[in-house]
Computed example of a mutant assay.
Amino acid sequence: MTQTSFPVLEHLRRRLAGSLEPGETTSMRYPTAIARLLGLEIVAVAERGATIRIEADVELHGNQQGTVHGGLLCELADAAIGTAHSTIIQPGESFTSLDLDARFVRPAWSGVLVASARCTHPGRTISHYQCEIRRDDGTSIASVTSAVMTLRGAQAAGR
């Protein structure tokens, strides 16, 4: 079988469309290990944008109060932001989050949660992202921002 590597954005678009053929790869790992563990699903992707969903279950993802744990919400947002940024990553490049700032607005319980990330400042090395997390009724539950650094050359090696 011949391996064909696509840019990340094209690879993810093909994956979403169900047209990805065996042996078609990209420089990033999709689905990620954490996405498989938590059941995160990419539902939309664009250049510097991504939407990720999870079927939250307070029996698996709950805190002491019986609501979805804020750490899960941070991971959901980080996955959306990382996926959004990965769409512009070239072969030989990688990236890392510099920070993640979450503002929790209201609680969530079991049900579908959707995180939509978009770039607010597309820098050459450091880009800024905004991510809104909503319950399945459309109500916003958290707003998350993050700065992401693109790594090149020796900085990207082994990442």
Score class of each variant (00 low, 15 high):
Arg15Gln: 13
Arg15Cys: 08
Arg15Pro: 00
Leu16Ser: 04
Ala17Lys: 09
Ala17Asn: 14
Ala17His: 05
Gly18Leu: 05
Leu20Thr: 13
Pro22Asn: 10
Gly23Leu: 15
Glu24Gly: 06
Ser27Ala: 12
Arg29His: 05
Thr32Met: 14
Ala33Tyr: 03
Ala33Leu: 14
Arg36Gln: 14
Leu40Val: 01
Glu41Tyr: 03
Ile42Val: 13
Arg48Met: 09
Thr51Leu: 08
Arg53Gly: 01
Glu55Arg: 12
Glu55His: 06
Glu55Tyr: 03
Glu59Pro: 00
Glu59Met: 05
Leu60Asn: 11
Gly62Trp: 11
Asn63Thr: 13
Gln64Asn: 10
Gln65Val: 10
Gly66Tyr: 11
Gly66Phe: 11
Gly66Cys: 12
Thr67His: 13
Val68Glu: 08
His69Leu: 12
His69Gly: 06
His69Thr: 10
Gly70Cys: 05
Gly71Arg: 08
Leu73Cys: 04
Asp78Tyr: 03
Ala79Asp: 05
Ala80Glu: 06
Gly82Pro: 02
Thr83Met: 14
Ala84Gly: 06
Thr87Trp: 02
Ile88Gly: 12
Ile88His: 04
Gln90Phe: 03
Pro91Thr: 04
Pro91Lys: 10
Gly92Phe: 05
Glu93Val: 11
Ser94Val: 09
Thr96Tyr: 05
Asp99Trp: 04
Ala102Asn: 03
Phe104Leu: 07
Val105Cys: 00
Val105His: 08
Arg106Ser: 14
Pro107Val: 09
Ser110Pro: 07
Ser110Gly: 14
Gly111Thr: 08
Ala115Phe: 05
Ala117Thr: 10
Cys119Ala: 14
Thr120Ser: 12
Pro122Asp: 02
Gly123Ser: 04
Gly123Ala: 09
Thr125Ile: 09
Ser127Gly: 12
His128Asn: 06
Tyr129Phe: 14
Gln130Asp: 14
Gln130Ser: 08
Glu132Leu: 13
Gly138Ala: 11
Thr139Gly: 13
Ser143Tyr: 12
Val144Asn: 02
Ser146Lys: 00
Val148Phe: 00
Val148Ala: 00
Met149Val: 07
Thr150Tyr: 03
Leu151Lys: 04
Leu151His: 02
Leu151Gln: 04
Gly153Leu: 11
Gly153Glu: 12
Ala156Pro: 06
Ala156Leu: 10
Ala156Asn: 11
